[in-house]
Amino acid sequence: MSRECTLDVNGSLTTLQVAPSARLIDVLRDNLGLTGTKEGCGNGECGSCTVLLEGRPVNACLLIALEVEGRAITTIEGLLGPGGKLSPVQQAFVEAGGIQCGFCTPGMIMSATALLEANPAPTDAEIRDALVGNLCRCTGYTQIIESVRAAAVRLGTGDRPEAPR
């Protein structure tokens, strides 16, 4: 019953057999071993599974894998730069204390990455708008906002990698 499907994930094409009902999150995690994408609710409520679909943040738990065939998907693993270096946004979350248990972190970083790509100097209100779909139970968000601000500064000072597709 499964169908052949070619997915474009983090710049690499992979052809695999996928059930018609398979969710993108399951294919990423179970078939491709990209377990950085986390399932916190399965209903698009918490944002832990946020990935980028052609640069825009989406919930991987709400997408059917076959529907995104051939379209560029970026996961948290795809943000690493050459030599496995953390991206400026990832590095900013590390240094500004935006991480506690870490379960929401990949989704949070994906949303922040998409925001800063579209808006390199967001206001705090714009940061809140961009991250309102990403729940965090640990941090109270203050240090997450500080992390995004720090990331904007990093990106603004030339520490800018190639944009995820």
């Binding site: 948290i76 991480i99 970083i109």
Partner: peptide
């Protein structure tokens, strides 16, 4: 920064 932060930021941490 906490010692586990980089792995968590990279999505490498195993739950």
């Amino acid at each position: 920064p906490r010692p586990d932060a980089a792995d968590k930021a990279a999505g490498r941490t195993l739950y």
